Structure formats: C-alpha cells, structure tokens
Amino acid sequence: MNKKLRIGLFMALLLFTSLPFGTAMAEEEVTKKEQKQVLNIAHRGASGHAPENTMAAFEKSVDMKADMFELDVQMSKDGELVVIHDTTVDRTTNGTGAVKDLTYEEIRELDAGSHFSDEFTGEKIPTLGEVLDEYRGKSGILIEVKSPSLYPGIAEKVADELTSRNMDKPNNNKIIVQSFDHDFVQTFHSLLPSVPVGVLISYNPFGISDSLLSEFTEYADYVNPNKDMMDASLLERIHSFGMETHPWTVRSQEAADSLLQLGVDGIITDYPDYVDPHKP
C-alpha cells in the first residue's frame, strides 16, 4: 500500500469516527470491551422457583442458564455427605431431628419438596456425589460446607468426592468450596490447593479490615460477604488484595441491579432471572 493511500484511509477513518454514527459504534465497542462478566450463582439451586438444595432446584438453575449453583453440605450419622442447609431436617422436610443423628437411609426417606409446593412432593435430599455426577460439565458448583465442627473428617470426605471424579483440577470443573468456618477453609485448602476456596462473611456493621483481608490472601480466592456490606470501597479493597467477591443473598431485582452496577464478580441469588449483566 503506497503512502498516499494509507493517508487517505486514515483520514476517512477519522471522519467516520467523528460522525454521530461512527462515534456511537466506537463507544459501543468500548462498552463491549469493558463489560464485566458477572457470575450468576443460583443459591441452593434456583430456590426461588423450586425447593432448595434438591435436584429440581439445580435443574431449574441450569434451565435458567445460571453459571453456577450453590449447595450446602452436611454429614449423616453414618458418614454420607448430604445436601441440606440446616443442621436439622425440620424446616425443609416432613421429618424431625438433627442431620448428624440420622442415617443416610432415614434421610433418604424424607420428603424435601412438599414444603415448597405440592408440585414437588417426593423430592429427596440428594448426596453430594449424586449432584456432582449429574451436573459435572453442565454447571459450575459452589459447595458450601455447613457447621463443619459438627462433622469430624468432613473436609477429607469432600476432597475425596472431588478427587475420585477428577474434579480437583484447576480451571477445569468450575468447582469452588466455601464456608463461614474459616479454619475449615484453611484445612480444605491444604488438602486440595488446586480447588478455589472462599470465605463467607456474616453481616458486620464494622466491615472487613485490611488486616483480615491480608490474612485471607494466604489461602482464599474469594471473600463473599452479606450483600448489605458490599460497597465500592469494599469491592476495591478485596480486588486490591487479589481476590474476588460473590455477595449473598439476592432476593430482589433492586438488590441485583445495585450489585451489577457496582461491578461485583458474582451474585448469589435465589432468583437467577434477576441477574442479567447484559440488560440495558
């Protein structure tokens, strides 16, 4: 290409981008490049639409195109990893008693769906292994271990479930493990350092100090606080320490929109349909 032709093309490009249409296209291109991918994480599955922590809720999450779903893990009396939020079965099933005092067979007999609606009567409490087998490759899975101090050896059992399925490889299976028990998180990280881990933070009006964030950097990849703690300053500080954040739990469109505008890395929500980073 000769020099005159190159100059002519350059001038034409300048003229094009100076026009309203050209400017709009250029701005749109910048917007696309700057657009942040916010992970849509279905809390206990799409629990606003189906009974929490059931296969129906996880399937609904996939149908609604959430990037990941979150689930809760505890351990039965006979050592089976079961997917349930509370330390008792009372709230979400037709049974009573502590999870740790019931065998897997006793837990399996419970109805975990009818409390939500008759449509889901007969839904069962699944095992972690069942969920991993069904949804590996279909969805990311955020595993929250509940009350690990009640269940000696639970860190090793969760690690075994992942390694036995070759799901402990970095950036391969979209698995994250998290807990409010930060000692557990450190223990799990020491067992499977290739699996990303997160620390959950309950609401604290005093926020999260830099010294605590610095401690988290020694083992955690994510700092996931109550959504009411999240603001631009906390987001900036978490990022400055090299970690990401997935606030919880969004149950309104207003809360989802606020976090999307803030630019968080992911949103944990009962309603995956509230989280759409591409809408105007």
Results as ranks from 00 to 15, higher is better:
Phe180Met: 04
Asp181Trp: 02
His182Ile: 02
Phe184Val: 05
Val185Phe: 00
Val185Arg: 00
Gln186Arg: 14
Thr187Lys: 12
Thr187Gln: 13
Phe188Pro: 06
Phe188Ala: 01
His189Asn: 10
His189Ile: 02
Ser190Lys: 13
Ser190Tyr: 06
Ser190Arg: 15
Leu191Ala: 05
Leu191Glu: 11
Leu191Arg: 00
Leu192Ile: 04
Leu192Asn: 13
Pro193His: 08
Ser194Pro: 04
Ser194Phe: 07
Val195Tyr: 01
Val195Trp: 00
Pro196Trp: 00
Pro196Gln: 05
Pro196Asn: 08
Val197Glu: 11
Gly198His: 04
Val199Phe: 03
Leu200Trp: 01
Leu200Val: 07
Ile201Asn: 10
Ile201Val: 15
Ile201Trp: 08
Ile201Cys: 12
Tyr203Arg: 13
Asn204His: 12
Asn204Trp: 09
Asn204Glu: 15
Pro205Trp: 05
Phe206Val: 11
Phe206Lys: 14
Phe206Tyr: 15
Gly207Gln: 01
Gly207Tyr: 00
Ile208Ser: 07
Ile208Gln: 03
Ile208Met: 10
Ser209Met: 10
Ser209Leu: 11
Asp210Ala: 13
Ser211Met: 10
Leu212Asp: 14
Leu213Lys: 07
Leu213Met: 15
Leu213Ala: 11
Ser214Thr: 13
Ser214Phe: 07
Ser214Gly: 04
Glu215Asp: 15
Phe216Gly: 03
Phe216Trp: 07
Thr217His: 11
Thr217Ile: 10
Thr217Val: 10
Glu218Asp: 13
Ala220Glu: 09
Ala220Cys: 08
Asp221Met: 00
Asp221Trp: 00
Tyr222Glu: 07
Tyr222Asn: 05
Tyr222Thr: 06
Val223Glu: 09
Val223Arg: 04
Val223Gln: 07
Asn224Cys: 12
Asn224Glu: 09
Asn224Tyr: 01
Pro225Lys: 02
Pro225His: 05
Pro225Ser: 05
Asn226Ile: 07
Lys227Phe: 06
Lys227Gln: 12
Asp228Cys: 04
Met229Asn: 09
Met229Cys: 07
Met230Arg: 01
Met230Val: 12
Met230Leu: 05
Asp231Ser: 03
Asp231Ala: 03
Asp231Cys: 00
Asp231Val: 02
Asp231Met: 03
Ala232Phe: 01
Ser233Val: 07
Leu235Ile: 05
Leu235Gly: 10
Arg237Gln: 08
Arg237Asp: 01
Ile238Phe: 06
Ile238Lys: 06
His239Gln: 09
Ser240Thr: 08
Ser240Ile: 04
Phe241Ala: 08
Gly242Glu: 08
Met243Leu: 02
Met243Gln: 08
Glu244Asn: 14
Glu244Ser: 15
Glu244Trp: 00
Thr245Tyr: 05
Thr245Gly: 09
Thr245Ser: 15
His246Lys: 05
His246Gln: 10
His246Leu: 06
Pro247Ser: 04
Thr249Ser: 14
Thr249Val: 13
Val250Trp: 01
Val250Ser: 13
Arg251Leu: 13
Ser252Leu: 08
Ser252Gly: 11
Ser252Arg: 10
Ser252Val: 12
Gln253Met: 14
Glu254Cys: 09
Glu254Trp: 07
Glu254Gly: 15
Ala255Met: 14
Ala256Tyr: 09
Asp257Arg: 02
Ser258His: 14
Ser258Tyr: 14
Leu259Thr: 08
Leu259Phe: 02
Leu259Tyr: 06
Leu260Lys: 01
Gln261Ala: 15
Gln261Arg: 15
Gln261Gly: 15
Gln261Met: 12
